[in-house]
Amino acid sequence: MHMADALISPIVGGTMWAATSGVMAYSIKKVQHDMDDNKIPLMGVMGAFVFAAQMINFSIPGTGSSGHLAGGMLLAILLGPYAGFLTMASVLLIQALFFADGGLLAYGCNVFNLGFFSCFVAYPMIDKWFIRDEMTSKRIFAASMVSSVVALQIGAFSVVLQTFLSGKTELPFGTFALFMQPIHLGIGVVEGLVTAAVVTYVWKARPEIIEKSIHGQELNGHSMKKVITTLAIVAVIVGSVFSWFASASPDGLEWSMLKTAGETELETPDGIHKTLSQIQTKVSFLPDYEFKNHESDEAVPTEAGEPWPAVSAGTSISGIIGGLITLLSAVFTGFMISIAKRRKKRIIV
């Protein structure tokens, strides 16, 4: 579920970075004010624990396959929402930096998709509906299951939305959603089962750990809860409407999305771009080289005699030649530098 840099646009990446930084700044403030200082090593080591626990294969009964823990919900339950969110953020940062698991520009998206929803949307549900008054194994099970499924469903939907808004792939919104949601339902169930098993075990062995973290860290009064609950409800409604719309009439959705997002993109070439390219031809000696801005039917072979495709063919060939020259010069530069380095070393030796 990690977003890659190649799939997002700068606007989506930047927006999510901003949102994530905001939540992080708020969480840091909360952690600094509310908690005893032993929270810091606890957060650090728990982050490492999640990293390590992700390596354990849990065989899923009756399926012959195995799944693993993502750990977002576990962190929220053990550390509370604010510390849990920060810990998830550092786990994701290390994954991005060392393993290119999720890109650096997409980091904001990933923290939001994997951290925010579990800590600030799903966790309050556990807190409020399941374990607050009375703790039993059944309640822990239900709480872990529901919260994990909810967190992963919203997270997956958020991935679909971010991918779609970035417009780097051709995947139709509905298809992608219909592909992602069921898969993450399965992943959510496994996550819920494992989280429930671990939390129940810890609760039976050392009840004070779970009880302290559940009762010790209320979210900041009712205002934060309200904001988050509203956010959650809106997200769920919007999500289900979209998915319903997507499954009912995928073409319609495509069309409406095209109208909102795509058309402006398609219209500009005729208007602004033409002027731009006119200016460009005036100020520079370059022909218009952007084939993507022509309607594609203009490039169909039957119209080869027309002036547009001629330019198009010319530009595409010059693109290929130029591209090859670029790559060759890259290789050449590489060789020159390594030869120069080797010479230098030899001289030193």
Binding site: D37, N38, I40, P41, L42, G44, V45, M46, A48, F49, A52, A53, I56, N57, F58, S59, I60, P61, G64, S66, L69, L78, L193, V194, A197, V198, T200, Y201, V202, A205, R206, I209
Partner: peptide, 29 residues
Amino acid sequence: THKGVHRSAWGSLAGQLLLRTLDRAQRIY
């Protein structure tokens, strides 16, 4: 013969690792 950790050991295996981790966090603190 198990492909992954069997369901009966999910909680105890990961849970004990977790408890040990919490103890370690305490010592580090």
